[in-house]
Amino acid sequence: MSPFKVLVVDDERDFLESLVRRLQRRSVDAAGVTSGEAALEHLERQRADVVVLDVKMPGMNGIDVLRRIKQLYPEVEVILLTGHASVESGVEGLALQAFDYLIKPVKLDELIERIMEAFDRRKVVSELAGTPQPADS
């Protein structure tokens, strides 16, 4: 299994389940939930390094969830994934420090690549934040 945990949030169950299984098959430690509320609950119980988040969902939408996650777990990286490509939501998402903004359907390899990049950044950020920085490094 990968050294990082991924949480996929999407109300589209067919898509969600298949994507999670495929990620796992590629040795990515992935889990899936079908709503924003469930995602926050999940994060309470279990750590995740990268969250792949659908923007348009019933109940809490992706932007709200993103805002909440960044409040509670600022070190978690979020990749927004949506069928809609309105400029506003993209811009807003990036302003709320989402790592990236991808439009469905996205190729699995591309998604994994972005997830790994996001994890790399998360590592750097948490190292900088977690350990006191030596003066000479």
Partner: peptide, 24 residues
């Protein structure tokens, strides 16, 4: 156009993942 694209993209993503999983 944006609304239509969105409505199509979601099932399309599902088809892509389901087909992709079968390929896997």
């Amino acid at each position: 156009a944006a609304g239509v694209a969105h409505e199509i993209n979601n099932p399309l993503a599902a088809i892509s993942e389901l087909g992709g999983e079968m390929q896997d």
